[in-house]
Amino acid sequence: MKLPPYDKFPEIISDTIVLRQIQIDDIKDIVKISFYDSRPAMTVEDATEMQDKINLDYQNGLSIHWGIADKNTNEIIGTLGYYRGFDKKVGELGCVLRPEFRGKGFMTEAMKLATEFGINDIGLTKIIAITTKQNNSATKLLERLNFIKIANLQDDEIEYQFVNNL
């Protein structure tokens, strides 16, 4: 396995998006979608503090967190990354997209790029994602991307596992 941190933060480019490191200038765009330990940011200061913790987790080899940037504007429209499980060759993939960018294929593309990176670059043997039963958009996305439901969890959550057909 090749775990973070990397000599150069991995930037992954497709036709429509760029997965890249979040910069301080990006924080204002992600306040409403910033979370750390299931706690949402309420202010730019909260989001900055959370990003500092996320960056420290990356430096400690515990996670990797990308901003999803629109390739045309470089504006951060969402985030995703692997947040737990590296010690067991597992990556728990989490994602969030700003509401005004949902339903346009950005997250589908971002998740494809992230799963490929997890398998091919990190060397993960298992990728999971957890969502709530009420989040129909997330469950449809996961199923469309070859994730299969493997468990019902507490608090109305569902665990999915990626099935690699590569």
Rank of each mutant, 00 (worst) to 15 (best):
T125V: 15
T125M: 08
T125F: 12
K126R: 15
I127C: 07
I128S: 11
I128T: 13
I128P: 06
I128E: 11
I128K: 12
A129S: 15
A129D: 00
A129K: 02
I130A: 04
I130Y: 03
I130W: 12
I130C: 05
I130E: 03
I130L: 07
I130G: 00
T131A: 02
T131G: 07
T131S: 09
T131W: 10
T131R: 05
T132N: 02
T132K: 05
K133P: 00
K133L: 02
K133I: 08
Q134S: 10
Q134H: 12
Q134C: 04
N135T: 00
N135R: 04
N136E: 14
N136C: 11
N136Y: 14
N136A: 11
N136I: 13
S137I: 14
S137N: 13
S137Y: 01
S137Q: 06
A138M: 14
A138D: 08
A138K: 06
T139F: 00
T139P: 03
T139S: 13
T139E: 05
K140L: 13
K140F: 07
K140P: 00
K140M: 08
K140E: 09
L141C: 05
L141Y: 00
L141A: 01
L141D: 06
L141G: 02
L141P: 03
L142E: 00
L142W: 02
E143T: 08
E143N: 09
R144M: 12
R144N: 12
R144A: 10
R144W: 00
R144K: 15
L145W: 03
L145Q: 07
F147N: 08
F147Q: 01
F147G: 01
I148F: 12
I148M: 13
I148E: 09
K149V: 06
K149H: 08
K149M: 09
K149L: 14
K149G: 00
K149T: 06
K149W: 01
I150K: 11
I150M: 03
I150D: 10
I150A: 10
A151T: 01
N152T: 11
N152W: 01
N152A: 06
N152F: 08
L153W: 10
L153R: 10
L153I: 05
Q154I: 11
Q154N: 13
D155T: 06
D155P: 07
D155H: 14
D155L: 09
D156W: 09
D156I: 05
D156A: 13
D156T: 07
E157W: 01
E157T: 11
E157S: 10
E157D: 06
I158V: 15
I158E: 03
E159S: 12
E159P: 05
E159K: 15
Y160M: 00
Y160N: 07
Q161P: 10
Q161C: 07
F162Y: 15
F162C: 02
F162M: 01
V163C: 13
V163Q: 15
V163D: 13
V163F: 09
N164R: 14
N164E: 05
N164D: 15
N165I: 14
N165C: 09
N165T: 13
N165A: 11
N165V: 13
N165K: 15
